[in-house]
Design a binder for these strands. Structure first.
Lengths: 228, 228
DNA sequence: CCAAAAGTGTTAGAGATACACCCATGG
DNA sequence: CCATGGGTGTATCTCTAACACTTTTGG
């Protein structure tokens, strides 16, 4: 089955990096400086080194791009249509990453001439097949967010239930009933009320909450899901 | 971001080919004739050619291996730990395939010294990281089967409700209540009763059904899922 | 004082679960 | 005639969905 005569394409990784900004789902794009697709926006990425695992490569690129180390990162899938890169055969392995825009100031975000955040739902024209890759990443994000507590990756450690509800509304793309939402999300027993309140925001300041990941681990083992 | 100096690993595809046999979920394995892992069982696979898309390569390998053309085939993901192939760096893109053992006589199945079907839940020792790949493929299969009518890929065109229930019990790994199962599965409106009955089987022969894919397309567009 | 967001319960209906017996037939 | 798998209905309970007003406070 294996022989020593076989093709050796280039293999890259690309990252769809998502963040929540002002109640909108954003994706981080970089502006290409060179041909092909010079001047076009693209998902950040790079080549996989010979001695590194695929997700190591993704993590490395992610850190180079955003300066952030500990982030949620997951493989989306391989895209390898011949001709997707006009220079040579490049198979890319798409990844989905989430950064918390509240805790970290993302390096690239300040460097706006080269990298900036765009609405994930309506991105500008993208290089290569990155439009397709972005769509697939978004689909995966929605799927995962509706069954696992992915919001911990997007929100600050202490958050209000309104922030949480906005997260679900943005990701799922539908409006949710406030009372039903609170009832359900609290019923899982993995979100704890804090004694602290938000400062200097709305007319009335909202109670802060945190996600109790230990409680969640226990509940998950007992077969609980986290569907909204 | 792209340069012309970058690594070129080998890229292969591997297929976890599933089938339902005597009410058991089976996976097709081949016996390796050469080193490394000579004599070990492995998932069938091969290298991606320079001018073919990834899923084309998977489809080609699948046909070479099983003689079957039209099958359900979907990407599971890329596996690329350095050293997973002792000879050189090989990144593999795992695929999940389903063949219907009733309609097709799979070519490799008769050629038992080289390829045969094993229980998917307890496979023999496998070459490379194929154990991990098989686990991931099984997980994906379970996930998909519990929300989409995947059974059409496993069962003959005309099937009994008992066969259908067995399918779900095998894939989901839990016993289901007969009455509740029938109520629910029929409530989707995508399974039609036929006037025909099974021949020469059980004491009492069971009514045959078929999946109405046109009706399902309509229902799906209306937002229906197919969860059990 | 008022605009704006926070917070809070109840009810009706849909869907899920639990459960047991008779029927038809081949051997 | 009996062992075997085929087929059927109901009651209860849980979960979901719909729905509106009071509270607080910064400007």
């Amino acid at each position: 089955m294996y022989s020593y005569q076989h093709p050796h394409p280039a293999v890259s990784i690309d990252c769809a990096i998502f963040g929540l900004d002002e109640g909108e789902l954003k994706v981080l794009l970089i502006e290409r400086k060179h041909e092909p697709f010079k001047g076009r926006w693209a998902l950040p990425g790079g080549f996989v080194e010979m001695d590194e695992d695929i997700d190591e490569a993704a993590r490395r690129e992610l850190e180079e791009e955003t300066g952030v180390r500990k982030v949620f990162l997951e493989q989306v899938g391989a895209f390898g249509a011949p001709g997707r890169d006009p220079r040579e055969r490049v198979i890319t392995i798409a990844h989905l990453a989430i950064v918390n825009l509240h805790d970290h100031k993302v390096r690239a975000a300040s460097d706006a001439s080269e990298a900036s955040w765009f609405p994930a739902a309506k991105p500008p024209a993208l290089a290569f097949d990155h439009r397709k890759i972005l769509e697939a990443s978004l689909a995966k994000l929605r799927d995962k967010a509706s069954r696992e507590p992915l919001f911990v990756e997007f929100l600050p450690k202490r958050f209000t239930l309104t922030q949480l509800q906005h997260f679900y509304e943005v990701v799922l793309g539908e409006a949710l009933d406030k009372r039903n939402f609170r009832k359900k999300i609290m019923s899982y027993g993995a979100i704890k009320e804090l004694e602290a309140f938000e400062v200097g925001k709305a007319p009335r300041s909202a109670r802060l909450h945190r996600f109790d990941s230990k409680a969640w681990t226990v509940l998950k083992k007992a077969g609980r899901s986290f569907a909204i």
